[in-house]
């Protein structure tokens, strides 16, 4: 009876793996739970980020201001301290947007470059060796 139950469970796991594989997830049935967990976490994170970042007028509204405005500057103002204009004020028109994009692009490039140096290059050399 016990053997039959175990066999039945194994078949069910294999069947679940088949269904998941049909959806495009290629993995061995043994790693099923790990893969589901990994992809589940990734999907949850992505959903959270995309929904919070891009749903409705999220960043366009004042409601979504930073805690520097809603907490730091607000409390400081109550106690008689106000934020001063930055020494180099880039918050003019689309200039700040441009600088953020530039900073993101350069930061992303540097990240990718060093990632390649640290991860990909040693693996390539190892593979050739």
């Amino acid at each position: 009876m016990k053997t039959k139950d175990t066999k039945c469970k194994t078949v069910k796991v294999h069947l679940t793996a088949e269904i998941a594989e049909y959806a495009g997830f290629k993995f061995k049935s043994k790693l099923l739970l790990h893969k589901i967990r990994d992809y589940g976490v990734a999907i949850l994170l992505i959903s959270f980020l995309l929904i919070t970042c891009h749903s409705s007028p999220v960043t366009a509204s004042d409601k979504w201001g930073g805690v520097d405005e809603s907490v730091v500057e607000k409390v400081a103002k109550e106690y008689g301290r106000e934020a001063r204009e930055p020494f180099i004020n880039t918050d003019r028109g689309d200039l700040l947007l441009f600088l953020f994009l530039l900073a993101g692009a350069i930061g992303g490039f540097v990240c990718g470059y060093y990632w390649r140096v640290i991860i990909s290059e040693p693996q390539r050399v190892k593979g050739e060796g």
Binding site: V67, D68, V72, A76, E85
Partner: peptide, 9 residues
């Protein structure tokens, strides 16, 4: 949108 303390605070 920063948590950093702004200039002049």
């Amino acid at each position: 949108y920063a948590m950093h303390i702004s200039e002049g605070i």
